[in-house]
Design a protein around this nucleic acid. Structure first.
Lengths: 162, 162
DNA sequence: TTATGGTTTCAGTGTCGAACGAAACCGATC
DNA sequence: GATCGGTTTCGTTCGACACTGAAACCATAA
């Protein structure tokens, strides 16, 4: 008889997981299963799980778990640990990495600055064309100073807290 | 003989438009055509265009232009103006709205706080489970104070500039 | 009223990617 | 060696959605 390792206990728990997955799907474009794995790893006890356990707990195919877990590892929010004498790899969420991910997301937003910039150089001659671009550009110039500043502040504040 | 209203003049221009569209597709999940329309409206001269002109300039079907222009209008970054005595509506980019859009995007990121919060309440009993959630929660608590602050600063700085 | 741009609606097409499940693979144990 | 979990690879299915093009629609001008 198989001992299923703690399925998503109560309905409330699996509902919370679904909401998390839905959030990541809609705002980050993350596959549903990846979001479920991430959410589950945040609250499962013990915190380390094998791919097989994830597959059982979330009733997703082993194939899907494999690709999505790899996705999360590449993202940097989940880590894979192996031990000798134990064939199964263990996955756990690296929750302290969360701020880095959000930071990276914001930096990608600011990346648009360089594109706007090149457009501005390209059409600098024409007054009206440049006007609209300049308005957007001024904003990104401001933002691209503020965002790094924001994360320096986070470093400082979180260091102080601990 | 038909007078095409200024197709994407030089190859450099249409390439810039493609890069913009690609950016919005990859980081915002925006349809390619919507990104093209947005980019084109940022640099076209004169700045107001009819749907038919957009269709010509970007060689996209009128149907696609219709749906994507509506999408951009609903987003708030493009406006539609009609005049009496003129059946064609004119579209123009509302470049001063750009900061609002970026702000909205960031606020959606912060929305995760409430979900994490509810999870935290749900599992507050168990020590280990709550630990990971609390780490993430502390970050979002900090962030959800900083983000509104950031935009207050933008209001202030941009007012000063003008 | 009819004719003339222009715009929207809608059904159909093609593409992309999420998810599955079976087969292959890999390490460790017996 | 063979066996046994566990993991990855891979071909396939399925659904979503971007895009098209033609038909319907609408407002103005003749």
């Amino acid at each position: 008889m198989v001992e299923y390792t703690q399925r998503t206990d109560r309905p409330a728990m699996s509902e919370w997981i679904e909401q998390m997955a839905a959030y990541f799907e809609s705002t980050e474009g993350m596959p549903l299963i990846a979001g479920r794995v991430l959410a589950f790893l945040l609250i499962c006890d013990p915190p380390e799980r094998t791919a097989a356990e994830l597959s059982h707990a979330l009733s997703a195919s082993t194939g899907s778990i494999s690709t999505n877990v790899r996705f999360l590892v590449r993202l940097g929010i989940v880590s894979k640990t192996t031990r000798q004498g134990r064939e199964a790899a263990l996955y756990r969420v690296e929750e302290h990495r969360w701020p880095e991910l959000v930071s990276a997301r914001m930096h990608r937003m600011v990346e648009l600055e360089s594109l706007i910039d090149s457009g501005l150089r390209m059409f600098s001659g024409q007054g009206e064309r440049a006007r609209r671009l300049r308005t957007v550009h001024e904003f990104y110039q401001w933002l691209s100073e503020e965002i790094p500043e924001l994360w320096r502040r986070w470093e400082r504040d979180s260091r102080r807290r601990s």
